[in-house]
Design a protein around this nucleic acid. Sequence first.
DNA 1: CAAAAATTTCAATAATTATTGAAAGTTTAA
DNA 2: TTAAACTTTCAATAATTATTGAAATTTTTG
Lengths: 168, 168
Amino acid sequence: MKLEEGKSRFIQAWGSLGSSWGISKSMAQIHALLLSSPDGLSTDEIMEQVQLSRGNVNTNVRELINWRLVRKETVLGERKEFFVALHDVHSIAQNIMEERKRRELEPVRRLLNELKTATIDGDKDEVKHFQSLISDLSDFVSQMENLTNLMTRINSNNYLQKMIKAIS
Amino acid sequence: MKLEEGKSRFIQAWGSLGSSWGISKSMAQIHALLLSSPDGLSTDEIMEQVQLSRGNVNTNVRELINWRLVRKETVLGERKEFFVALHDVHSIAQNIMEERKRRELEPVRRLLNELKTATIDGDKDEVKHFQSLISDLSDFVSQMENLTNLMTRINSNNYLQKMIKAIS
DNA sequence: CAAAAATTTCAATAATTATTGAAAGTTTAA
DNA sequence: TTAAACTTTCAATAATTATTGAAATTTTTG
């Protein structure tokens, strides 16, 4: 298989996987391209290699920068910007985790706290059921947060990595 | 706050959270309703309480059953079916994890294995970079799988739960 | 400073995904 | 066996989300 074909397969597949997560296909494709390029690429190079419009590339590259998965780079004597992916898989994972935690877990937490502190009127057993649901969900969210933190630690701790494997 | 209002807040919020995951709003809302109802509900009751069409309720309830988050129940002397949510938060989490693993991790694994076994032609350094990306991603997927397994174990193991908290 | 180069914005449009509802199908009870 | 009760399907439609591309803005260079 030619390298170009391999990359292209990877980019396409990553794109459709991305959309089955909550990530736009373009963003995932651009990310895949930058991951597989050792050096930074310019907007025009990205546009050409993944066949997307300038606006789309601009928007999604900036989104990738928000996620801390990509950074801008300037090259001496070049006017345009180049974009380089973070290549360390553990850091990538960590940043994705943090972003998802922020986007997915925190809003849940807000809702649950609101419902936890409210006084609720109604049929005694039903209220009890509802409150215990809310409380169970809160505990679960905390557990997820713990697990996310653990995940983060794994990066820098080879021993922990082995331990996880051992107890899994 | 009236119980009805609390439930309704929960249902609405869960719905919009759901769609920021990859889950349809209706499915998340129906799930929230069933979670907050101690007893099973019929299709018509669900339709009324979340204001959705019969077809939508039917489809999404069956999807919830696929995810093993809801089960059918028949009541003696009643002709219609009732739907009851799995109420144990840990089992819920486990089933969601398993389903996401199946849907999200396995397709990645397939792609990565394909690229890992192929012989790739091209500029030596670039090929090397690409192959090390693929290999790193494979390792990462394995780690995610380990972590998912760990997650599953936490359910039945209070000691493990404390340990995670301690090392997080 | 002006003009070229590059970037950003955003209204219009396309693509995708979710939802409806009525018709077809199935099950149940008398 | 039939009719009512209930469930399922699916083509049509609505709603949402992603993408385009040209115009506006910003940045850089001479």
